[in-house]
Nucleic acid binder design. Structure first.
Ligand SMILES: [Mn+2]
Ligand SMILES: [Mn+2]
Ligand SMILES: [Mn+2]
Ligand SMILES: [Mn+2]
Lengths: 230, 230
DNA sequence: AGAGAGAATTAGACGAGTCTAATGCAAAAG
DNA sequence: CTTTTGCATTAGACTCGTCTAATTCTCTCT
């Protein structure tokens, strides 16, 4: 059996592998999980003993297929829970993350199945992130780009908004920026800010670190990917 | 912050206080939680340090008011979860206990409130056990008696069926014995078995240890207590 | 009152997960 | 090709929850 902690490490490594170039450095894991580097070292050693990661000393780690499956399992739990809390219990979009971060480690497979059924086997969570399927097949995280990477005039649709500070999420939600929102880049200011115009005509200005967290795709991509049911 | 383990100890002490005469002996706690006596000793010492139990060395422990409040809090979580899993996720009556036993320690107060609201602030769980209210006021556990304590001819209503082995629960459920079932004691056999006749006319025979787990009340009591909405 | 039985506690250990302080390695800079 | 610098790892410690073995207490029985 894996502990909740081990699951969190695996999930973090999964995410970090996709954000940068594998292998994932110990210090990066430590930072993500808010522990000291020696703590991360001793944890990745345990993970290695269980063949959940491959490790090159002084370099970093990569998930093995088994490790990736565990990560996908936890991510499936997390995203199903976020969806459930939002859709069935009326949680605000910004409140669900913390709750899911804990419960993901404690629900049974039975609970997972029943929640998935109750939600009609959803493909994406309320942030717009894809939910791994029952078989835990690899998911495509990459059919979207950061809002920050587009120039003035770009016509885009919000694919998802990354998990972060809940005040930020609430702010964006209130401003009308949620998965599915269509917008046009109005101005890319040289001071590290981008202004977008929403469908309804309102404009919203966002500092770069926020624009980085907003994943978008062009309407054509959306059609090609068949993810329009968001 | 209290650990899941501490919560389980407090819940166990709460239950044992009502089953026998306080103070609750260390060995009883150890048995209930399936740990060795020294483990229970060291845990109750910690609980004492935090003023959650009062302890007389070599005698046993009693919950302090704070300890009782924690126990009621955990019991509220447990019973709300059992109700929720049964009513909203379609769990079978016999499957919910294990899941609730874990989740009770990990849901937030927000989750508790929202589940209670979704269920319309239920007063009893699917076993027929009372759910402590939001204020965690003491609950009356004792307005029912064991089926085993009644003689032939007694006309009774099942108040609740105690948490136990899930095969037993399934068996009783299939036999038609659930909270609210009306029955008459048909025969009390000298070999440690009691036979009851249900409303529909079917008879069911039960060994004493099962008849002990079934709490009943006379129809008059039911009216007096106003608990008929089970 | 004294002895013995039975229960509770103390002693000492261990794994998990974490920390701080000390040390070691490797890649970049000279 | 050597030095520096910055991670990574090792060493050693601590808490939590648990165990086994040894000891001590309490209560009942003679
Ligand atoms: Mn988590
Ligand atoms: Mn699962
Ligand atoms: Mn529990
Ligand atoms: Mn609560």
């Amino acid at each position: 059996m894996l502990s909740a902690k081990m699951e969190d490490y695996l999930k973090a490594i999964y995410r970090l592998e996709r954000e940068g170039e594998p292998p994932v450095a110990t210090s990066t894991i430590a930072e993500t999980l808010e522990v000291t580097p020696p703590t991360a070292t001793s944890m990745v050693e345990k993970l290695e003993d269980r063949d959940l990661v491959e490790r090159e000393k002084y370099k970093g780690v990569t998930l093995t297929p088994e490790g990736e499956t565990v990560a996908l399992e936890v991510i499936r739990h997390h995203r199903l829970l976020e969806t459930f809390l939002t859709e069935e219990l009326g949680y605000d979009w910004s409140e669900v993350h913390e709750e899911a971060e804990i419960l993901e480690h404690h629900i049974s497979e039975e609970f997972e199945r029943r929640v998935a059924a109750a939600l009609d086997e959803p493909a994406v969570d309320p942030h717009g992130d894809p939910i791994p399927n029952d078989e835990l097949e690899p998911i495509d995280d990459h059919s979207a780009s950061a809002l920050a990477d587009h120039g003035e005039g770009a016509r885009l649709e919000v694919a998802r908004v990354r998990d972060r500070d809940s005040e930020e999420l609430t702010y964006l939600d209130d401003a009308g920026i949620t998965p599915g929102t269509k917008l046009v880049v109005e101005e890319v200011a040289p001071i590290g800010m981008v202004t977008v115009r929403l469908d309804g005509g309102e404009t919203v200005s966002l500092p770069d670190h926020i624009a980085d967290a907003i994943q978008v795709r062009t309407p054509e991509d959306a059609v090609a990917d068949g993810v329009s049911e968001v």
